[in-house]
Each structure stands twice: as structure tokens, then as C-alpha cells.
Design a protein around this nucleic acid. Sequence first.
DNA 1: CCCATTATGTATCGAGTGCTACAGATCGTC
DNA 2: GACGATCTGTAGCACTCGATACATAATGGG
Lengths: 195, 195
Amino acid sequence: MARTLEFDYDTTLERATRLFWKSGYAGTSLRDLLKEMGIGESSFYNTMKSKKRAYLECLKHYNETVARKRAKVFLEAPTAALGVRALFNNMLESLDNPDTPAVICMMAGSLTHEVLDEAELREYIEGRMTTLRDTMIARMNADKRDGLLTAGFEPQFVVPIVSTYMQGLWRMALVSYERSSFERQIDVFLTGLGL
Amino acid sequence: MARTLEFDYDTTLERATRLFWKSGYAGTSLRDLLKEMGIGESSFYNTMKSKKRAYLECLKHYNETVARKRAKVFLEAPTAALGVRALFNNMLESLDNPDTPAVICMMAGSLTHEVLDEAELREYIEGRMTTLRDTMIARMNADKRDGLLTAGFEPQFVVPIVSTYMQGLWRMALVSYERSSFERQIDVFLTGLGL
DNA sequence: CCCATTATGTATCGAGTGCTACAGATCGTC
DNA sequence: GACGATCTGTAGCACTCGATACATAATGGG
């Protein structure tokens, strides 16, 4: 019926994701993005419609890969407490891995005015964060019923604390990161919370 | 000897600070900045030299006012534990106060690539953060010697946790803020740490 | 009053922004 | 193999960015 796409959508999306991840939304210009994706303006606007929508697609792609793996790491641990610790270990591995595009999680990097001011982006991000928190809370409540967590343990407060602390850690890593120091403070933090 | 300045430096610096505070470094254009300050390009570059240097001056001004007040709030509390809690209360008051220019601390808002990529800005920010942490650690060590904190309490790990968590809170407030929820989780957090 | 010195207003620079118009290339269908 | 449909390359849009050139205006010492 018509001409076929000359580029592979998944490949270009993957490349775009890594660039957005590394440089942020406003920090990535359309020219840089196109260069990285290896396509022209026409192809880009034909498939993506706008930079904002492209970022949204990249965020989704990020969640279907990186974030999904993190959720898996958490859920497959024998207990919620170990799951949370596995999550932080996964974070430290990302920080140590030179192949990781950025020193910050793409979701954490999206917690800025430039991104949050775009209604569609904000909505998606809020949704993902809520989902992740709900998953963790549910898991902890299950553990609590099984007696794996003390009766005084309150998942609905602990989980926001954990995710807030993690957001802070991603930011702090931007300033300076040293594994042993991070490891130690994470351990003190989690132990204090009863995890 | 020469022509006198037509504007009041302190006033324009104050205005610039509030705009930078609200909109961030990259998010504030020179045009908006000049409009807010009520001066022209010539006057600006004559006294400030560049946007980067202007931001640095604003950061310093911010620290000499807002951040200084926060440090005072911490130090004047009867104990380090109460000081930390007073600090969080001060934060919540800022969040509640509609006169506060932004929903984020200017220092927390500076923990981005756009700012941290500028060597002079990064250096200043690192310095301030280190100073604040050292102040808190010293205070806690004093309390520890006085028996106000348990022997197992380790200030050198707890303080980074507290400041990291606070950075996370500022970010989270960008997404959604509700005082009662924040209050509750802060209390659980601090209690867990032994504060 | 002249003059060096400094401040200000205006106009503009060159580069970069996201995005679009449009002509031409390539496809499946008849 | 002509046709309509879709894709792609190029050029450029209108705008904004931070920064600067330069003429003019004010200042106070000599």
C-alpha cells in the first residue's frame, strides 16, 4: 500500500531512551536525539509526533526493561525485607556499571519541573510510582501477616520512606558516589526501619 | 569619578534569587531574569559578568538567609535529635507557606546536571553540603558524649542518611505534597534512626 | 568646565531550539 | 507500469538563548 519504514523502531527507541536517560529531557536537543537515533526530522515526527511524546515512549520503554527488572528483583526475593535490600544492591550495581547510561535512574531524573510541567508525562510518572509503591506495600503486608515483619511495622509509611530515600540517593550520587559509603548508610537506614 | 549605579544591588539580587529558586538555573532565561530584576543587559553583565556567576551569587545569598536560618534552627534546639526534627518542621513550614518561591529548596534544586556541570557551582554546592553535614555530625557526637544518644548511634552514617532523605523529600514534594502524610513518614523515619 | 571613568539603553550577534513545508523517493495495488 | 499512499531528505521556519558592541548619559576630580 505504501512505502516501508527504513529504520527499526525498537532500535531507535532504545537509542533515544539511553540518550534521554543520560542527558535528561531538556538536556537532550532534537538534533542530538536524531543523530543518536540515526534518522531525520521527517521520520521522527512521522512516528513520534513530538519530543514530549518521544520522551513518554522512552519512559515506557525504560519501565518495561530496567524498572521491570528492578520490580522482578524485589518480588523474587524470599521476603520483602530481602527484596528491598536486593533493590538497593541492584541500584549500586547500576551505579558501578560503566555501561549504565547515566548516574541517575531515568524515573528519578524525571522528577524535575521541565518534565513534571508536561501533564501527560507527569501523569505517567505518578502512575508508575504509585504502582511500584502499591506493589511493595502489598508484599510487606503479606509478610506481616506471615509474621515476617513485626506487628508495629507500618508498610504504608515505610514504603514512601524507602522510595523517598532512594530518590535522594540517586540525586546524591550525582554529586559524589563511593560504593562502600553508600552500602554502609543504606544498611544503617534499612536496619533502622526494621528491614 | 564616575557614574553611580541606578539600581540597588541587594534588591535585584534578592529578586534574582527568588526567580532562580522558583524556576531553576536552566529554567530561568536571561530575559526573564532581567525583567524580574528591573535592569538591562548592560547593568547585569557589568555587575554579574555572566548568568553562571549570577546564579552563584544567588546561591550564596540563599545560604546567607534561608539556609542560615535552617542551620540556626538546628543548632538552637536543646538536643541534636530535636534539632533534626526542628529542621524537618522548618521544611514543612516552607512547603506550606505560599510565600515560599518554590516547592523545592534551592540547594536541592541545584542537584541537577545543568548546575553540577558548571565547575564553580558544583564546588560551592559540595562545600556547603559538607559544611552542613559536618555541623550536624559534630553536634551529634557531642550529644553522644553526653549520653543523649545511644552508644551504637553512628553520626557519620546517620547524618548522610538524613540529608539524603531530605533531598528525596524535596523532590517528592514536586510530585505531590500533603502535610499530614509527610509528617507521619518523617516521624517514622527519624524514630527508626533513633532520633 | 573639561575630561576620564563608569553606567545604561538599544540593537544585534551567532548559535541553537522544536518543529514544519515540500519535493522527491519508494512501496503495494490494480 | 501508472496510481495513491506513505516515508524521507533538505531547507527553512519563527523563536529563544546567553552574550556583546557601541553610542549615549551621568558622575566627580582637576
